[in-house]
Amino acid sequence: MNASATSALERRPSLRYRRRYLTNLLGWTFYGVFFAVLAFALLDIIAVVLKHGIPAISLELFTKPTNGVSGGLLNAIIGTFLLTFGSLLLAAPVGILGGIYVAEYTASPFARAARYLSDVLVGVPSIVFGLFGYLAMVTWLGWHFSLLAGCITLALMIIPYILRTTELAFRGVVSELREAAYALGASHAKVTLKVILRACRGRVLTGVLLAMAISMGETAPLIYTVNWSNYVWGGHLTHEPVGYLTYVVWSFINEPFDSAHALAYAAALLVTVFVLVITTSTRLLLSRLDTHKPH
């Protein structure tokens, strides 16, 4: 490859010079423009959400539930947190333990299959999970629209994310640490949880945080599993629909009232801010981990 570059460059340097210079300049400009397009898209999305969302922010938003298509978003804010943390509560232990298995038993065909299938599962569209949740939990098990149906649906979606980040985190821990711990006679569980997990908990946490951001921003899997409620969650895991922020964005923008549009933009603002803050802090955590522990 570099051979062709070399010969091309050496043949007629003086004539080529201008063309090369121009090509280089043009190339870098193009690449810069591509980057600028992406950065602009993000900033414009944030700007639109801020522009329409900020005027809609009020104290009432955080203290009152939705009253028809006006009022506040207390019910949706609480619902979004319940769904997010509920799904994490279900997914994190399974994902972390599964990730430990896949990392520690790398040679086993079952672990390899589990890892590969996690990657495949990550690619399954969220609406497919939503349909599954509707058919399996809402109607077949008769749970009706409910927090539990939503949490399980989201959990199934995010387990593979947590599993794979945990696996990568575990594989990042140097073998010497592991061997030293075993040499001291520690049990398998103790070595894994007290020594290795502690050593890489930052990275495991980033996986959980990313999964949290995914849960928080999802809509499609929830429309037919959790539905919507104007009320703050009443404590029932089944047979009670729950409000959540992304529903407000999707549905209230379709109502003929200005108050509904204001709520939709306010909800979009809250979700976007939550998700971007989580993602940014994850990135910061990761880069801190990278600088502290280069491998």
Partner: peptide, 26 residues
């Protein structure tokens, strides 16, 4: 580099409905 990369990578974190909203409005 890290901050600039973050700009691109955050694009992936924007929820789908917010992308839809932006598409619809802008």
């Amino acid at each position: 580099r890290n901050s600039a990369s973050l700009l691109v990578e955050l694009l992936a974190a924007v929820p789908s409905v917010v992308f839809g909203l932006w598409g619809y409005v802008v």
